[in-house]
Structure formats: structure tokens, C-alpha cells
Design a binder for these strands. Structure first.
Lengths: 254, 254
DNA sequence: AGTACATTGCGTCATAATAACACATTTAAA
DNA sequence: TTTAAATGTGTTATTATGACGCAATGTACT
């Protein structure tokens, strides 16, 4: 992000002042829920991938752009979940160091040295189709198990936690998996996904029944190969029904 | 808001640029879900009560301030639900007229003539305890039945709709009523509240059972007086259990 | 005063959803 | 060949939900 950030700050008149976007990008691999995090060399703390909002772009569009840039994945599941605007969420000291590092003149640099409010988006992407892309040679971008997230800058940990909370709640309102699993998957895989997000064991048999009743999966006439123990059946999502349920919601409640 | 708005614009260096807060304030009265709306004299369209964010205030605090100013009610149920930031959500023409009306010099007025992103909050308040307070003599503030909301400025209708959608979804996740009903209420009243929000008829008997099972209401040894037909029993919320359920959520789902 | 009517209080019953668990089958590894 | 770990396919008990019945209460009308 370094070069690009410098560019933005030097042309800050084209960007929404005091407002940023931070993305919590979730992926699933090796039975782990992973989060895409960024680290700038020489900085001990990691951060969420984020960006700024061009004046001529809707905030949702800006978020999509950030996501595409970082993951190379299209048609991403992306949802705004909260906006963070505590006064103390900024770190003038840190920002000043960034400006120094980027060799930005003071008049331009002022733009960054204010309180920034940030809009949080979370995304669900297919781990294997994702190509994490650093925006320059000084940046590291990496999938990190959500259980082993290191120290993050500013309030990014709070943002991440809130994203996960939201995801957990929305698990009851919408189907999930289409964006996180490969096209063909097994029931134990889908269950692991749910268990990992919820941090809770579920009963195999009840899980199968519930998913089946939702009617979003199709059982394929094919088994997973090269696995230990009994080969599990493969399933795929019925995209049409999946989208329908996604639109109308799962639990009616009242 | 007029005088105050002028004040803010003229001292705009103390406020977060390009960012505002809009509040959808819900109340319940006469079996109607009402929304608190504002109209400035000479302007045919109504708007949501809103405000700006002082640089030294958290956005949540700013929202609370706006709400207290408008309703005089304390301990309000207030929740951020979404942030709106389409490019075209602003209306330069309208803003220019506001500036002219407020007699604000051009250099100061520029502050308002940019794209504003707005953070939406919705609130649930006790209709009878609320004293709608115009911020000056040119402003009208009124409770309006949500089914009869007139034309609103900018994207305020979209914001209102989204607030109601969110409220409907959150009805399945949390108890409601404590902030919208008087201390003592009848079951039909509570049911009407739910029916009005959901825009859907519910079965009396099933409703009673469900609410009772949640365990948030206490049946009082008292009946409502001065009513047509059979006098219904009065209930009150068990605040302790209510807060507990509010905190832990209603439906576990998975 | 008597009756009709709207509304409340307190049920029932059939069905669906959920939680807890049993058992046989498949496959790798011992 | 046996064992262990996983999968496929059930059952059963409990709880939640949806649809409805009926008597009691109090107003309003004749």
C-alpha cells in the first residue's frame, strides 16, 4: 500500500477526508478460518487491508475496489457491518511516522493527521482462488488463522472481532459457504466451516439434516478421493436456491 | 436546526468534514409506529433529524447528543445500523439554497458543498416521555406515522427503510418494547407493537405463549381501566431478565 | 333489562424443528 | 486380520410452532 498511499495523500483533494474503509477478509483452509492481514516492513504490528474513498466513488464501490486489488477475486461476498469513529482510535504518533517514512511534505501530510472514521466491511472469499497481492515491495500480505491473529494497529482488533460477531449472527439469517468453499465439497468440510466460525462442536447428523432441509445443496454422485478412512460424498451448492435463501433469509422468527 | 447549523458551518473546522449522522427515531402511540421527522419552514420536504460530529466526540456520543437534543429522553435505545455513502446522495442545489437561506459566506459554505457520508442510527423511545424539540423557531418537528411518511430530502427515505428493515431483523434477535411502551402495558398493546413493526397479524394466543416463554414480562395483579370490552391484564417488563436476554440474544439458531 | 358483539383468558391438538443417541459401513493403519 | 477413525443412515424424546375452540368479561344497543 505504500506507494499507493503516498499517491493518495499527495492527491488528497480527490479523496473523502477523514474517512477510510477497512476490510476483514475471511477465507477457509485446512479447517481454519483465516483472515487476510497486512504488514508493512519495519512495523511490528499487522493491520487490516484498507483504503480511502475517491470523491467520485460510492463507498460500496470503493470497498469492492480494495477487495479486488487485494485478492484478485471477483464476485466477492462483501458486506458493510459497522462504522468506527472513536476519537482516540487514531494514533498521531504512528501517522507522523508513516508520513516521515513516505517522505511526504508537511502541507500534504496534514490530511492524514486528523481523526479518521473508518467503515468496516467483511468479505468471504474462496481461499484457493485468492491471490493475496501486496501493493508494493515493502508490504507483506498473508492469510492468518483467526485464532492466532497477532497484535494489530489502532482499533483493528476491535474491528475484526466485530466482524466475526456479525458473521456469527448472520449465520442464522443467511446460508454461508458458497463463497468460502470450493465448488465441490464434503459435508464434514461444510460442518467444519460452521464449527470454526461458531467455535462450537455440532452434531454431524443433525447438521446434515438441517442443511439438507434448507435445500441449498445437491448431493453429487461422486466421493472425495485420497482421504483417510471412509470417503465422504461430495456436494455442491444449488446456486439458484442458495441465492433465493440468501435474499429471503433463513429464519422467519416472528 | 437552522441557527445551530449556521453555527456549525461557520465553525466547521471543529467538525468532522464530509460526515454526518442521521437518526431514525421510532415511537409507538395509538397503535401506530411513529417516526420523528423535521421540516424547515419554506421547504416542502421533510427530513430525518441529524447532525454533525465534533472532532472531539466519538460518533456514538455525537448520536446520543443529537437524540437527547431532539427528544429530551435519557437512556435511549440507540443503535448504529448502516452508513450511507453514494456519490449522488447529495444535492448541491439544495445545499446551495440552504447556504443562501442561512446567509453564509462562500468560503465557509464550501464546507457543506461536498459529498457527505452519513452514519445511520435508529432509536426506540417512549412516545409519552418524549418532548419533540425544534432547534429554532423555523423548524417543525413532529411524530409521523411510518405508513404516512411524506417525501423526504435526499436519500432519507432509503435510510428510514433500512432502519425499519434492520429493526425487523433484530426483532428476532432481541426483545423489544421496553423503550417503546409505558411501564405498565397490556399484552394486546405489546402485540400491536410487534404487528405494526412487522406489518403482519399475529395470533393472540401464540404470541402470549412466546413472550411468556422468553420470561421477560411479569403479570401484574391489575387490569387496565377505562377500556371498551373486557379489561386486559397489565404487565411490566422484568428489567433484569430483559437486559439479560438483550445481551445474550434470543435465537441461538446454531 | 336483555341481547349482541368485540375482546380477553386459557386452553387443545397436529405438525415441525431440534437434541441426543445407535448402529452398520468404509478405509487406512497396526 | 484386527483396530480405529471416520462416514451414511437411521430412531426417539422433547420442544417449538401454527391453527384453532370456547367460556368469561364488559360495552353498546334495543
Amino acid at each position: 500500500m505504500t506507494k499507493k498511499l503516498k499517491d493518495i495523500i499527495e492527491n488528497n483533494e480527490n479523496y473523502q477526508p477523514g474517512l477510510s474503509i477497512d476490510c476483514v477478509i475471511f477465507g477457509f483452509h485446512d479447517n481454519q478460518l483465516k483472515v487476510l492481514l497486512i504488514k508493512v516492513r519495519d512495523n511490528p504490528k499487522w493491520s487490516l487491508p484498507g483504503g480511502f474513498i475517491p470523491l467520485d466513488e460510492d463507498i460500496d464501490t470503493a470497498a469492492v475496489t480494495i477487495l479486488n486489488d487485494r485478492t484478485g477475486v471477483d464476485g466477492i461476498f462483501l458486506r458493510q457491518f459497522a462504522t468506527f469513529g472513536k476519537v482516540k482510535r487514531n494514533d498521531q504518533h504512528f501517522d507522523a511516522k508513516v508520513l516521515e517514512y513516505l517522505q511526504i511534505e508537511e502541507s500534504k501530510g496534514k490530511w492524514l493527521l486528523r481523526r479518521f472514521v473508518t467503515i468496516g466491511y467483511y468479505a468471504l472469499v474462496d481461499f484457493l482462488k485468492t491471490i493475496p497481492r501486496p501493493s508494493n515491495e515493502h508490504e507483506i500480505i498473508e492469510w492468518i488463522d483467526h485464532k492466532e491473529v497477532p497484535e494489530l494497529i489502532l482499533d483493528h482488533k476491535e474491528i475484526l472481532d466485530k466482524a466475526l460477531d456479525t458473521l456469527r449472527i448472520e449465520l442464522n439469517l443467511m446460508p454461508i459457504g458458497y463463497n468460502l468453499l470450493p465448488e465441490k465439497f464434503t459435508m464434514p468440510e461444510l460442518q467444519k466451516l460452521y464449527e470454526t466460525i461458531l467455535d462450537k462442536k455440532l452434531d454431524r447428523r443433525n447438521f446434515l439434516r438441517k442443511i439438507t432441509n434448507i435445500g441449498i445443496v445437491t448431493k453429487l454422485d461422486e466421493k472425495k478421493s485420497n482421504v483417510a478412512h471412509k470417503a465422504p460424498n461430495l456436494y455442491s451448492f444449488d446456486k439458484e436456491k442458495y441465492d433465493e435463501v440468501l435474499k429471503n433469509g433463513l429464519n422467519q422468527g416472528w
